[in-house]
Structure formats: structure tokens, C-alpha cells
Nucleic acid binder design. Structure first.
Length: 233
DNA sequence: TTATAGATTGCCT
DNA sequence: GGCAATCTATAAT
């Protein structure tokens, strides 16, 4: 029996200095467009461990957070995908070239971030469900409108698709259609050399159609994975 | 033109 | 564990 701390994570984790802030970020660089041109299920697995970057925030800082949970959404053959009903004004980014941000507004309150996959003309995307904060956590807390009172509050920043967008200031007006393959973009995705291991696959969360398809991927045991139980298995 | 479901979150018991 | 909040794209009159 392992002794656990807040949120049911091993006490060992909460004893760690937070945040985990790797020097490897100094060598971070974006992946090229071909990285995103394949099947969303393949791209999703490759994205685990990569880093989401927001440049030039209000205070001039840089927000970074590691991708720890994603879901794949296919094209018109996937009933749960926004592309299921064909191309519309809303989902047109999914049908465009790969490596671009598709952002939608849901439940009247929240934005969600996807990256487009498959070659231009074919729909597909990966939903970002949870991140592990690396730098800029105070700004994230400010954007989320919460106070950080110790390690137990860390997952409140970026654990959940709506939360991570709020933490990064991601909106449809600002970021929909942005190129995520260029470090010149305000928002982009980079590789800092981190290599994911122990990738866990589960059914997608929060959907009713095709709910049994195992297209959710996460870093096993990572405390920043979303969901009430916070961890899968 | 009106109705409704939705890739969520936070607060309540 | 249950449920309201709150907006919009899309389906149904």
C-alpha cells in the first residue's frame, strides 16, 4: 500500500520541487509539418511529451507546459468528430493543412484546442486534454483566476481541455487557424528532447457517440492527467 | 425562426 | 455523485 497525498498521488510526487523545470527547454524547437500529416491516432501518441508554448504574454514571459493527455478525432467516418457532418465554417481548419490550431467554444463557457492532422483536404485532429506546467505558472494562475496554495493546486492550472486553454489565454478569435509548426507564432508546439514512455490507451472522455473507441492517450501515472480520478489505472 | 445537444467546469449535497 | 451555468452550431419547424 503506497501512501498517497492530495488528489491520490504518491506522497513522493508531492515532495518533489515544483514545477519540474527542465533545462532541455533551451533547445526546444518546433516539429515540421510532416509530423502532423498522418493518422490522428499516430500523431496523438507522438505528441505526448512534447511542449505547448505561448510567446510574449502580457508580462513578456513565456508559458510552457508538457503534453500529458490527448485524444484523436478522425474524419467524416468518426461519429464523435466535428468533421463527421462534413466541412463547415466552424470546422474548416480540420480540413486544411496539418499542424494548425482548431479551436472551438463549448458549453457556453470553454474553449478547446486541437491540432489539425492528415494532408490538406482530409479531416482529422488531436484534442489537447491535459498539460504539465513547466514555466509561467503564476501567469497561468492569474489567467485561470485562482490562487495557488501549494502543490495540491497545480493540476487546477492545466488539467482539462477547457482549463488549459484558459491558462494559455487561448480563444477562437485569437488562435483559430494559427500555424503551430513555427516558433514565430504566438502559440506553437516544440520538442525539447523529452521521450515519453508508458503510454496508456483508454476510451475517449465526455462523448456519447463512438464512446467505446480507444482513442485517448496519456502518460501513465502522470498527476496532471484530467478526470475525477486524475489517473488512469 | 425556434429548439436542442454539446470533445466542460465548478459548486452543491 | 449530482447538476446548473451559459453560448453557439446545427437540426428541426
Amino acid at each position: 500500500m503506497v501512501e498517497t497525498g492530495p488528489a491520490g498521488h504518491p506522497l513522493e510526487f508531492w515532495m518533489m520541487p515544483q514545477p519540474r523545470n527542465p533545462e532541455s527547454l533551451s533547445t526546444i524547437r518546433p516539429m515540421d509539418r510532416s509530423f502532423y500529416a498522418g493518422d490522428p491516432r499516430h500523431v496523438a501518441r507522438k505528441l505526448l511529451g512534447k511542449v505547448l508554448v505561448r510567446e510574449a504574454t502580457t508580462t513578456g514571459g513565456r508559458l510552457t507546459a508538457r503534453i500529458v493527455e490527448v485524444e484523436a478525432y478522425l474524419g467524416e467516418e468518426d461519429p464523435a468528430a466535428h468533421a463527421a457532418a462534413g466541412r463547415t465554417l466552424r470546422n474548416s481548419v480540420l480540413f486544411g493543412p496539418p499542424g494548425h490550431a482548431y479551436i472551438y467554444f463549448i458549453y457556453g463557457n470553454h474553449y478547446c484546442l486541437n491540432v489539425s492532422c492528415e494532408p490538406e483536404g482530409e479531416a482529422g485532429g488531436v484534442l489537447f486534454r491535459a498539460l504539465e506546467p513547466l514555466t509561467g505558472t503564476e501567469e497561468m494562475a492569474q489567467a485561470r483566476g485562482i490562487e495557488l496554495d501549494g502543490p495540491k493546486d497545480w493540476p487546477k492550472l492545466t488539467s482539462g481541455p477547457g482549463r488549459l486553454c484558459e491558462a494559455f489565454g487561448i480563444t477562437r478569435a485569437r488562435d483559430n487557424g494559427s500555424d503551430l509548426t513555427s516558433a514565430k507564432s504566438s502559440l506553437w508546439i516544440g520538442d525539447d528532447g523529452y521521450r515519453a514512455r508508458d503510454i496508456v490507451t483508454t476510451p475517449r472522455i465526455g462523448i456519447t457517440k463512438a464512446a467505446d473507441m480507444p482513442f485517448r492517450y496519456l502518460l501513465g501515472g502522470n498527476p496532471f492527467v484530467s478526470g475525477r480520478k486524475m489517473r488512469a489505472k
